[in-house]
Design a binder for these strands. Sequence first.
DNA 1: AGAGATTGCTTAACCGGATAAGGGAACCTG
DNA 2: CAGGTTCCCTTATCCGGTTAAGCAATCTCT
Lengths: 341, 341
Amino acid sequence: MKRPTIADIARRAGVSKVAVSYALNGQPGVSEATRATIVAIAEEIGWRPNSAARALNGARARSIGLALCRPARILGMEPFFMELISGIQDELSAQSHALMLQVVRDHTEEIDLYRRWWGEGRIDGAILVDLHLSDPRVAVVESLRMPVVVIGHPSGSGPLTPVWSDDSAAVRETVQYLAALGHRRIARIAGLPKLVHTVLRDRAFAETCAELALDGHVVVHTDYTGEQGARATRRLLSAPDRPSAIVYDNDIMAVAGLSVAQELRLDVPGDLSIVAWDDSPLSQVVRPPLTALSRDIPAYGAHAARTLMSLIAGEHVPGFEDAAAQLTTRGSTGAPASSRP
Amino acid sequence: MKRPTIADIARRAGVSKVAVSYALNGQPGVSEATRATIVAIAEEIGWRPNSAARALNGARARSIGLALCRPARILGMEPFFMELISGIQDELSAQSHALMLQVVRDHTEEIDLYRRWWGEGRIDGAILVDLHLSDPRVAVVESLRMPVVVIGHPSGSGPLTPVWSDDSAAVRETVQYLAALGHRRIARIAGLPKLVHTVLRDRAFAETCAELALDGHVVVHTDYTGEQGARATRRLLSAPDRPSAIVYDNDIMAVAGLSVAQELRLDVPGDLSIVAWDDSPLSQVVRPPLTALSRDIPAYGAHAARTLMSLIAGEHVPGFEDAAAQLTTRGSTGAPASSRP
DNA sequence: AGAGATTGCTTAACCGGATAAGGGAACCTG
DNA sequence: CAGGTTCCCTTATCCGGTTAAGCAATCTCT
């Protein structure tokens, strides 16, 4: 009881394998009558093209690769990745491509993975995330001549095709908004300092604070966990010149920070305003709900996937700039108590 | 500049393709000297076996499938799935298998997907999650004769191999703990009522409440979002005979519930005790930190993957019962104020 | 030393499709 | 009615590996 092949269909239809191949692929070379017979038999016996056999004829693998390089517990807490994956797949499945996903420990392992996947013909291309400064992956995938889309700013993607959103603009908007509310001391609790987008956000933050002549612009780097977010918040709020607003690089740290503030009997937003990066349901269920930088992450993923499909199809694509994150104001931000009448 | 094949190696080594195949697969039939030469050449030119060609010879696809059937926003908020995936992959990559992941809209689409993946020889097996009552997927994958592991209780997995943990025991432990603290009115804010594990938890909840002769055991079903969790909590707490403890089916709803309680100026745990199902960093960053039912979810996934690998290898595996969730008590639970001296 | 076994390689065939080239019959054209 | 097209289907070959079977040369045993 093996799975049926075109040879089985050919036998039953009394024609050659080739006629079947033509018929099932909509190629000319068979009469409509024969084609109908063949298609009917194929459906009846439940034939599916063997993807391996197709791939062997130089066809594409019809799947793309994605490697995630963060520990399980952190990945779990980051709605970003699941939403991104979901968006990628919306686009992929529309073009009946599959996604090969792997969680890796480090870049060495990730690079090995790409070599293997590409070398074995398992994937037609890949999406790179979490770009680092002078990222070793860029040169390697470039040398593999594998179609790749980098989710991240062009400044770090080298010769690879980037899909990005303007984080600097979002940072600027946020700081300007807080300054307009009357905040003079704004801190930023950031993610991993090695990531390109962290650096870009840091820079935009420092620049905007300088432009507006704010009093200080402390930046603390963390690993994105609520724990480190809480610790950093505690330290900032215990200092003599504590900030009146903190911008967090993700929502889990923002929620942790909110808890710390409440623990210290600080009023949010009276004593402390809080802004979260990347809006998620989480931001809305806490009290007060968090002002957040919202993006349509599934759409972001879909754009990356679409760009990759174009690359795979051989088109030349310069890259794609997605919409910048929008500041969604909620209860966690307001004028600082000190500036009130 | 195509990728090198064993024919290229054969040419350079001055032997036949077959000798190369034997040499590279550790098969007998070539001298050690020849083998060394061939291996050296293979490494030099960076040869990788073409997975399609291998698969065509009846070999396995060396990948397994996983379909997730929840909207992007909910998936993103559920640390469960990312941790599960991460655990599955730890086991898979140890056996150099890949994971094909797809987010689907409904069971029909999921079933189509399995037919396609299996029919095309893309996967060697699959892991089924979120089992429903009288789930149509069970019969279909059974008829496909595809190796499948179901993550869920044996009562719903039919003839398929289950990997599960004893949710009933966890519910019982929780209710007994709350009753011991003095709670008489305990409510449960549950997930989707169609899911098998929801039904099992509901039943265990009702039974334990009855055994302990508690006053009421309200159960509200939701879609796992913080929104619905908040709304359900608000309704429960506004009722005349409001519960003194609520057990939530996930942590995002528990956090939402906590916020609602604080909004209503209720003291947690004095006026309301809160228990979350599935511990995540989130439970620990809010104030008070949430008492939660903790499981090692990556390990759960790894067990499922290992069981599936055994099935694929043709072994007969009865199933695997993982450890039940452990109650981790934190600040969100305590004796109800009414029962205090 | 001759029969038999072992070693080390070969050729041939196969997996399930795609594709190039070929060929017979019908049909059209001048 | 020869010659050219078109239609519809065939045979042959290929993709990159695996596997079975064959066959010299060498080794082993009596």
